[in-house]
């Protein structure tokens, strides 16, 4: 099905792509270590097959489902999205996958489903970072979206990148891609999706609530308390050109998503 994927040009950037080796060798996936190259080194034995996803909470159809059965009915597409990390670097990546809304709708979320919570696999045997002694993060990694954010056509579930299956370091077999939010929202290796009535706490929010809010929308006007978010370095950067560019509101996707936050004080709801 990945091979049959067509590029969705409505949702694709025409910027220069970050080369494949950089996309698969520069990862923040702390379950596999703190260094950028740790995940590519330590995740190669990671087992992604068989893979099941548990659906819980405020939906008509809940239970545990095999991944292939969940994604088989959907049409795969390619989308070229900007990825803006909260650490102020960015990439342009061709993802393969399905719209998140398509997958969520099949479980028939009820009117009580105001939020969606996602959980990463917890398996310290396979994920050495979850055994790390001095980690500031609680495992498993948890992230969340408001239901209207989750149902927005931009929200995407990726199973592949650059026309190939997703490598483990990029979040195989299934990861979220929310291009208008900082990268840490795009949770990897998802094993659980829960529909909730109340706002879920996310991992980074629990670790440092003053630095990472629930929304985490890319916003050049709201700095991280310890660094500016006004600009970013587009990777790969060579040594004598840091490749610094201006950061755009909602990572350049304001037209598609700004209306979701109409009337909200984005300094408060950062």
């Amino acid at each position: 099905s990945i091979k049959a994927a067509q590029r969705n040009s409505n949702f694709s950037s025409n910027e220069k792509l970050t080369p494949y080796p950089d996309v698969i060798l520069h990862n923040n996936f702390y379950e596999f270590g703190l260094g950028k190259q740790d995940p590519s080194r330590k995740a190669q034995q990671f087992k992604t097959d068989p893979w099941a996803i548990e659906i819980e909470g405020e939906a008509e159809k809940v239970g545990k489902f095999a991944l292939e059965n969940l994604i088989k009915p959907h049409k795969f597409e390619e989308r070229i999205y900007r990825l803006r990390c909260v650490e102020a670097w960015s990439m342009v990546i061709p993802w393969l996958g399905i719209p998140l809304a398509d997958l969520l709708k099949q479980f028939k979320p009820t009117s009580k489903a105001k939020y969606v919570e996602f959980t990463t696999l917890y398996d310290p045997q396979q994920m050495p970072g979850q055994k790390a002694l001095f980690s500031s993060l609680d495992w498993p990694y948890v992230e969340g979206l408001r239901i209207d954010e989750a149902m927005n056509p931009l929200s995407f579930l990726a199973t592949g990148v650059y026309g190939q299956a997703l490598p483990p370091q990029n979040g195989a077999p299934l990861r979220l891609v929310v291009p208008w939010k900082y990268g840490f929202k795009s949770i990897k290796s998802i094993v659980k999706i829960r529909f909730t009535e109340t706002m879920p706490r996310s991992t980074w929010n629990l670790t440092a609530p003053k630095e990472y809010g629930f929304f985490a929308n890319v916003n050049p006007e709201v700095d991280h308390p310890r660094w500016t978010q006004a600009s970013e370095r587009r990777l790969p950067s060579s040594l004598f050109s840091p490749n610094r560019i201006e950061t755009l509101p909602f990572n350049g996707y304001a037209e598609e998503v700004a209306h979701l936050y109409a009337g909200m004080d984005l300094r408060k709801w950062f």
Partner: peptide
């Protein structure tokens, strides 16, 4: 040094 040699250095 990967995609972000600056930071590594």
């Amino acid at each position: 040094l990967g995609a972000d040699p600056a930071k590594e250095i």
